[in-house]
Design a protein around this nucleic acid. Structure first.
Lengths: 119, 119
DNA sequence: GTTTTTAGTTTATCACGGTAAACCTGTACT
DNA sequence: AGTACAGGTTTACCGTGATAAACTAAAAAC
């Protein structure tokens, strides 16, 4: 699979694209100038690098994504769990929930998801 | 609070220390040489940088940690959730659990933790 | 008393992520 | 014909994380 690891600047950039795609590339340079303070060439460099990796596509001056936000989120979660928590969701939760309180709604939502993921 | 963000090399290094601390610094250079392929000076550079940040301590040639593994794990989890999932545990879980199955034991464990974190 | 080892510090190199200047080509407008 | 702008590419600089060479000083071993 393509490498879904996004560096910080790449992620900030993708965040904009996920929100606005499909978007004209010149328009995108303007948004990035405003939101990230980037020069035009910086945006085009990013576009090129990310298309080389199959993360997005630039055709006829229109930028569209090849990889959905969720795929990246999932990938990042799995890497974190794998690297830092021995791949164990219970261990992750035990650590994460320390000193935290959940609302009844959140708890219910989660219980339901857990049930549905149980074989 | 001190900055708990650890870079990749720092984390690999801390992994060793969390396992072996308290450990003599010369001994540590040998372990790092073996497990990470590092030269002695690299290990000492790491020791110095991490002690400047209050992550560990080196006294009388004995290295001990000031920050437990769990604190870093928790910090990293919170940053990921905050940055990538809008700080929402349900959203995180919905994404993470896609195409995943949990064993009955895992599910039970998790249900219990959720209950206990509910006010 | 000389060599070896321990326990570091100072200083430097290198790779790479982040950012951009400079340049180029085509097209639309005047 | 000349200017303006869209839509890029080529090339490069800069900061910093990762790694280490070279040097030092004290203690231990011989």
């Amino acid at each position: 699979m393509e490498d879904l690891k996004l560096f910080d600047a790449e992620y900030k950039f993708m965040d904009i694209i996920w929100e606005l795609e499909p978007i004209n590339s010149t328009e995108l340079t303007k948004v990035c100038r405003k939101k990230l303070g980037w020069k035009k060439s910086t945006t085009y460099t990013m576009i090129r690098k990310l298309s080389e990796r199959g993360i997005l596509k630039n055709e006829n001056a229109t930028v569209t994504v090849m990889v959905k936000r969720e795929q990246v989120q999932k990938y990042e979660s799995e890497v974190l769990l794998e690297d830092k928590f021995d791949g164990s969701l219970p261990i992750f939760l035990a650590t994460f929930l320390q000193d935290k309180k959940l609302s009844k709604e959140e708890a219910k939502e989660i219980q339901k998801m857990i049930e549905e993921a149980t074989k």
